[in-house]
Design a protein around this nucleic acid. Structure first.
Length: 768
DNA sequence: TATTGTGTCTTTTTT
DNA sequence: AGACACAATA
């Protein structure tokens, strides 16, 4: 990940400088030394803003500020972790660890756990992720008889979320509603809030909103935290929303020892309610602020910086800045034209192999960035085939898989039995004999009496409408309460094991999934739990679940191995890599969807492109495909309009145009410089596209989490090949569809059965 | 009435 | 491909 640059940036630093700050340039140094009063650091990409921020905190410690009085708010857990590590290196790990560093959400959750009784919550409150939120919205819409065809639940969830991030309560929203859509939102919003209250649950936005509510209404509590956090800093300030802005303001007043760092050109979370005005208006909000501009870029070559500047200058709305570098010009930017995403993936893998050897680089030096998580699949496959180790940041998180969520929902239910959402999940999986009708009726009663759902279940016999369902309802409630009763006497993992078994989930997963992958995933939660518990002995179930909800799953264990990093452009913010690959620069993908029709959205996409370009230190390779598999079919794709914003003078175009590509499929260029090197990929690659592509993927390769171990077991599955299946016997492959993990093979078994099998899961072996 | 099977959209980006 | 709403069964 981002490395601490050890070489001093300013050779002019004077001899009597404090040892600590002598590694900073004058602006960075000013930033680090100004620890009292408001400070605004406008930091261009690669200008050492994290460096300034970490040195600033180290300097505070040196000046005698107590670590627990320091609060550092970041946007991602990764950034928080990294900051803490860097400070630890500069000072003392013990001290660094006592600093409050974390995301807005996790820090506020921590405070709310302690203080939530003042705003009417129980400290066992659950935290809903966006999936949960969507389900609650849908359920509320159902209760209110609002058509989900007419009003998309996703949109309504988005509107509610936006309202919260703008600090608009449902009462206020209701008063100010303008049209028929807003009218529906107001209805849902109000009922949603009531249900969340009743459920003793908060969604991500509530963590912000409720902190404000807490501070607004409880002066003593507010003062307590004002005193505790005497020095506050906020990273990526351009991405704060209204709620975050207000929460911070409440916290730092009246001392205003606040330091914010940001770059309006890197604001990429407008869609999440980020308000760029927060950074633009900082000087107005905090009079007498010291404003520091960091404009020297230490990260990238002159060429890369030129490209970045050329791109961003197309945005109308931006603060004038002058980002410059003393770094050498470096290599041209390579613009690679590919036929399709498989070609793009192979060419990327091959280019990495080349560069890895030629430049004596480590795999850690490479990053592959893309706009959407779905793009990772073909690349993973290509990297596995090329034997290149990789790690994926984000993506389809383990904790969002259905079976994992179902299991975790049971656990969450034990901590907070009042949470209606987790009741309804647990009721459905495993099937409990409680169906739609029963749930609807019970839900209506719960709303009417303003009671938690599970309470209604328990007292089902009291309600005539529920008499038909009473047996199943009370049985379910008993079960949950029985679990909760046992929970105090067990260790975390014992409890989890008990729940998995006795909820019936274990049996259910065995029944519906013969391969056992799903059960294994559920069991892996228990493993993960034990691992976390081993590191942190007295962690409670509540704390564990909070971590799962708010902290991106740390694929840690393998964090230190040498591997290429794959991630979305959003996750890449704040990071840097010597060699960066930007994929899928195509109209409709990047800029995504219809964002080219809306100037604001287009500018945000452009800033995202800017972020991508500026991640690169030494070399940048951008690729675009002539066609791409999207929405279930292959569609023609045209180059992104952003590519026109790059100048020919520093760009080297390689690869064929899509029309000429046919004859030379499988041949491609992979060089970084303007000396195109042609080479054949693999052994049996040079084939026209339409011939069934030979799959050389074993089960192990396809399921392997990392490519480190990817030994090539030439499975050779192709049309006409004879295969063996453990249960179906032998058969002949009729057809192959899809690619990567989604590859499906149609097999005609000698038993007469025609089966569609997902290659990833079907343990097929080739019969000679 | 609960469960299972079949068709239809869906798919940004993150906490 | 995967979730989800709706329709057919048990």
């Amino acid at each position: 990940m981002g490395k601490l640059k050890l070489s001093p940036q300013d050779s002019q630093s004077r001899a009597y400088d404090s040892h600590l700050l002598s590694a900073l340039n004058p602006q960075q140094r000013l930033a680090a030394e100004t620890i009292d009063g408001p400070v605004l650091i406008l930091a261009g990409a690669g200008s050492g803003k994290t460096r300034a921020l970490t040195y600033r905190i180290a300097y505070m410690l040196e000046q005698g500020v107590q670590p627990w009085n320091i609060l550092a708010l970041t946007f991602t857990n990764k950034a928080a972790r990294e900051m803490q590590e860097r400070i630890a290196k500069l000072t003392d790990p013990e001290l660094a660890h006592s600093i409050w560093a974390g995301t807005f959400h996790s820090i506020f959750a921590r405070i709310l756990r302690i203080e939530c009784k003042y705003i009417g919550y129980d400290s066992a409150f659950s935290i809903h992720d966006s999936d949960d939120t969507l389900r609650v919205v849908k359920s509320v819409m159902q209760s209110l008889h609002i058509s989900q065809q007419e009003f998309s639940p996703q949109m309504i969830r988005g509107s509610i979320s936006k309202a919260k991030n703008d600090c608009v309560s449902w009462q206020q929203y209701d008063r100010e509603k303008t049209g028929p859509y807003e009218h529906q939102v107001a209805l849902v919003y109000a009922e949603y809030e009531k249900r969340m209250r009743r459920s003793n649950a908060m969604d991500f936005d509530d963590l912000l909103v409720n902190i404000i509510r807490l501070f607004d209404n409880n002066e003593d509590v507010l003062n307590k935290y004002r005193q505790r956090f005497s020095h506050v800093s906020v990273d990526e300030y351009q991405d704060t929303n209204q709620a975050q802005y207000r929460a911070v303001k409440l916290l730092v007043e009246p001392q205003n020892n606040i330091c914010v760092v940001g770059d309006d050109a890197q604001s990429i979370y407008r869609w999440r309610g980020a308000d760029i005005r927060n950074i633009l208006d900082f000087e107005r909000d905090y009079p007498n602020a010291t404003v520091i501009r960091l404009e020297q870029n230490y990260r990238s070559t002159g060429t890369i910086l030129k490209a970045a500047n050329d791109v961003i200058k197309n945005n109308e709305r931006q603060v004038a800045k002058n980002l410059w570098t003393e770094n050498p010009e470096g290599d041209n930017i390579v613009l690679m034209h590919c036929q399709d995403e498989r070609h793009e993936a192979r060419s990327t893998a091959s280019s990495i192999s080349d560069c890895h050897m030629r430049e004596f680089a480590t795999y850690n030096d490479f990053a592959i960035l893309y706009r959407t998580n779905a793009q990772s699949q073909p690349i993973e496959e290509a990297l596995r085939m090329a034997g290149i180790p990789y790690r994926i940041v984000g993506g389809v998180s383990f904790f969002r898989r259905k079976e994992v969520k179902d299991f975790v929902s049971w656990l969450k239910l034990l901590v907070n039995p009042h949470d209606d959402e987790y009741v309804s999940r647990a009721v459905a999986e495993p099937p409990s004999g409680i169906g739609k009708k029963a749930m609807e009726t019970a839900q209506a009663i719960a709303s009417e009496h303003d009671q938690p759902l599970l309470q209604v279940f328990r007292e089902a016999r009291k309600y005539a409408e529920l008499s038909r369902f009473a047996n199943n309802l009370t049985a379910f409630a008993e079960k949950v309460f029985a679990f909760a009763g046992k929970s105090s006497t067990m260790s975390l993992s014992e409890l989890a094991e008990m729940v998995l078994l006795e909820s019936g989930l274990e049996k259910r997963l065995k029944d519906i999934d013969e391969e056992g992958d799903r059960l294994r995933n559920a069991e892996q939660v228990i493993t993960h739990m034990s691992e976390v518990a081993a590191e942190n002995e007295d962690i409670t179930l509540t704390e564990y679940l909070e971590q799962v909800a708010l902290v991106e799953e740390d694929t840690n264990k393998s964090e230190n191995r040498d591997a290429v990093t794959l991630m979305t452009l959003h996750s890449a913010k704040g990071l840097e890599f010597p060699y960066v690959y930007l994929l899928g620069l195509e109209q409709g993908l990047f800029p995504l969807g219809k964002s080219d029709q809306n100037p604001d959205e287009l500018e945000e996409e452009r800033r995202l492109f800017y972020v991508g370009i500026t991640r690169a230190e030494k070399a940048l390779r951008i690729s675009t495909c002539g066609r791409r598999f999207r929405f279930g079919e292959t569609m023609p794709s045209s180059p992104s309009q952003f590519l026109q914003e790059l100048d020919d003078s520093y760009t080297t175009v390689v690869g064929e145009s899509a029309s000429r590509s046919r004859q030379s499929s499988g041949m491609f260029d992979s060089s970084y410089n303007s000396r195109p090197v042609r080479k054949t990929y693999g052994r049996s690659r040079a084939k026209p596209d339409d011939t069934p592509v030979r799959k050389k993927l074993s089960f192990e390769e396809l399921t392997a989490k990392s490519a480190g171990a990817a030994k090539k077991a030439p499975g050779g599955i192709a049309k006409g090949v004879k295969v063996q299946h453990p249960t179906f016997g032998t058969g002949t492959v009729q057809a192959i569809n899809g690619s990567g993990d989604n590859t499906v093979v149609l097999v005609n078994f000698s038993s007469g059965q025609l089966k569609k099998l997902v290659l990833k899961f079907a343990k097929l072996t080739v019969v000679k």
